[in-house]
Simulated assay, not measured.
Amino acid sequence: MENSISIKKLASDLELEVIAGSTGLKRRVKAEMLNRPGVELAGFYDFYDQERILLIGSKEASFLKLFSPHIQKERVDRIVSEQPPAIVFSTNVEITQDFIDAANLYEVPILKSSLRTTPLNSRLYSYLHSGLAPRMSVHGVLVDIHGLGTLIIGKSGIGKSETALELIKRGHILISDDRVDIFETSPGVIIGNAPKILERYIEIRGIGIVDIVSMFGAGSYRENKKIRLVVELEHWKKDKVYDRLGIETETTKFFNTEIPKIIIPILPGRNTATLVESAAMNQKLKYLGHNAALELTEAVAKAAMQKEEDDEE
């Protein structure tokens, strides 16, 4: 299903003032790109994309004023009659009566920002790009461990939420429990957040729903985080050979992005929260260029080679 965002939500989220065309706030935008209508205001409509939001800054407004009042009215009526999702004006632009009349006639919302054109353009694009990106949901818990977004997955009942609760007690930050909604902002960047209804809550079997913010303070929760490590918890399997050195890195793929993955076997007596915390810190060191497993194997190989040389002498 194609993603879309209502103009009413966009106006609310970006704090845009509704100037005209309020009956069209139910419209939805599906295109993340914006249209700066320069050539359209000059009368050239061959490449006009009515699926895009129109952004009008000082340059467009000044260019339109070069024409006679009759031409101005004709051009404005033409671009608004194509019924784009909305028309957004930057802070220093005067919105003429021609735009207001056309917006009310065709039910196209006119929105006014307090930002200048360049920062407004960046903010609009970033908002649309994130909001319209393909999304998927993962059963798991997302925690910010020392700045590293760590997605904890595993079968139901294995202790993902309990592990997250212990990590939060240690000062780490919850992003989402039970269900994590993820999207790719660009290849290599996967962002995870919580569904609106689940924000700041954790479900602990035997206890119930826990409000993390009320219990541990506002600093224990954040809205989203880039996922840089996946930790899968599983019950210990006797016949399975687990990686003891960590030289070979397993990955899991979301959209077009490969993310390092670690499997941690669960046994009585093993502190799962400590293991997950250690895995995250070790992965962070790898991102910084320090790989303990490689350094150890290189040191062992060097020592063995030195011993052979000593024996030959």
Rank of each mutant, 00 (worst) to 15 (best):
I197S: 02
P195C: 06
T272L: 02
H235M: 06
K112R: 15
V180F: 04
E94K: 14
Q97Y: 01
E232R: 13
L105I: 05
G140E: 02
Y125R: 01
A20H: 09
S58G: 03
R135H: 02
L267N: 08
L14S: 08
K26C: 07
S161M: 11
L14N: 05
P37H: 09
G188I: 03
V39I: 15
A293Y: 09
E199I: 05
K196Q: 15
L111I: 12
R78K: 15
V18S: 06
V230A: 09
F44M: 14
E107M: 03
Y221T: 00
I175M: 07
D46K: 06
S12R: 10
L151G: 06
A164E: 01
E17D: 14
G246N: 03
R116Q: 14
F44E: 13
D144H: 03
L66I: 11
A31R: 09
M281W: 03
N193C: 15
G171W: 12
G269W: 06
S278W: 00
H235C: 00
L167A: 09
E313V: 13
A301Q: 13
V141P: 06
H70E: 15
G269K: 04
D311Q: 14
F63P: 00
L174Y: 06
E184D: 03
K237I: 13
G246E: 05
L229T: 07
Q72E: 13
L14I: 07
A42W: 10
L174T: 02
V276K: 10
V93T: 14
I110M: 12
E248M: 14
L229H: 10
G38D: 12
D310H: 12
V213P: 09
T96K: 15
G140K: 00
D211K: 08
K65Y: 07
A280Y: 02
P265K: 07
K73W: 04
I53C: 03
S156L: 02
G269M: 05
L229Q: 03
G269H: 01
R78G: 00
E295N: 14
V29K: 00
G159Q: 09
I56K: 01
